[in-house]
Design a protein around this nucleic acid. Structure first.
Lengths: 205, 205
DNA sequence: CGCGACGTTGATTTGCCTCAACGATTGTGG
DNA sequence: CCACAATCGTTGAGGCAAATCAACGTCGCG
């Protein structure tokens, strides 16, 4: 947990997250500021574990810059990537965060990243104080759920080549930023098989 | 959409939904009543389509009694069941409901069901009026998302026999209420294969 | 009764995994 | 600056889980 204690940056840019929140629901300047005051900026080097399965996740992180991955480990040690969080995304273990239970997922940075943390306690009291913030996060969670429903459907119903094509369409910049075997684990296939898929596609083109 | 016009029942029981909401977050009596006033009770016979893919879903339904299923159809006509909503669950196409976009999923009753509908418009204005309600639904959506993350992980990482065993553990009463091929579509396997799984288990026992 | 939806069972196929070997690249300590 | 290991991606042979296709029995219902 050493990464939690990094020095607070003096030059944090709250522009992106401010726009991010305002896009969800209108906030008065004072309301927005109350939220920003409670954020803890952190600079985290690449390949740092932010959360290990079993720990309790008492924070949610907004990614100001960099790239973060959340994933599950199955009993054979294979990992299933739940999310790649790039700039302007949130990442957390929601179940652990809301229930205070030990997390089942792990979270790590893939690049040097600047994160803005909000603690569970602060968030709760902010919600009580500023209902508009509760609305913002309700909307964010709703979108998240709708997106995961889509992904679930695609994962069950579509064969791997389609899923990969769709992934490239929606995240064209990701392959340049994350290792290929993690993309495989996002798609729910083995690295070897993804490599063969790519071989086939390249062969055709 | 004829089912939407059924006569309003005179003897609707709001006890279950009241407890359901109060369990999420405290509501004052007046706040709760404002919500209940905006519900539209509906009795719907079994095997009725509540939503067809392509329509816009402007309601969320609380299941007071009965059983409702939401599902996606893939291009080959196979369906993927997203949810079985029994008593005390909500069902809706969240993406369509919040975006006003054409739905990608379909929803149908599996049994004669008593539903309590809330319309999108009413819900929005209630949220503006009663922040505590916004909190209730934020929490419900959060739980829903956490549960779907778990299911996603299980679907990708576990083989079918484990998924079926887990399903039976968590929903022991469902096989008696819904056709087996729908359970297969919930598990993401074919009806034939589920039948063979059951054969194997019965053979062992 | 007879039709259609449902579940079962078997033969065959296939999409993806496993295991293993092999370059290429990166980074790290001597 | 180089030796070395570690990580990463590729490729191939073989295997397995689950799908597909087809036939058949059963039940509920019009």
């Amino acid at each position: 947990m050493g990464w939690l204690r990094h020095l607070r940056a003096v030059d944090t840019d709250f522009g992106a997250i401010s726009r991010h929140l305002q896009r969800c629901a209108p906030l008065r300047a004072g309301e927005l500021d109350r939220f920003l005051e409670n954020l803890e900026p952190r600079h985290v080097p690449k390949r740092t574990a932010l959360l290990r399965a079993g720990e309790v996740c008492d924070w949610e992180a907004y990614v100001n810059s960099g790239c973060v991955r959340s994933y599950f480990l199955d009993e054979k040690g294979h990992d299933v990537t739940l999310q790649f969080a790039l700039e302007d995304w949130w990442v957390s273990d929601l179940a652990s965060f809301t229930e205070g239970s030990p997390s089942r997922m792990s979270i790590e940075t893939l690049e040097d990243s600047e994160l803005l943390l909000i603690r569970r306690e602060q968030k709760e009291s902010l919600f009580a104080e500023v209902p508009a913030l509760e609305r913002v996060f309700r909307i964010l969670v709703q979108r998240n759920l709708a997106a995961l429903q889509d992904r679930f459907f695609a994962t069950v119903a579509q064969p791997a080549p389609e899923r990969y094509a769709e992934f490239l369409r929606r995240h064209p910049s990701l392959p340049a930023r994350v290792p290929q075997h993690m993309i495989a684990s996002y798609l729910g296939i083995t690295p070897e098989f993804l490599s063969k898929l790519r071989g086939r596609i390249a062969g055709k083109g």
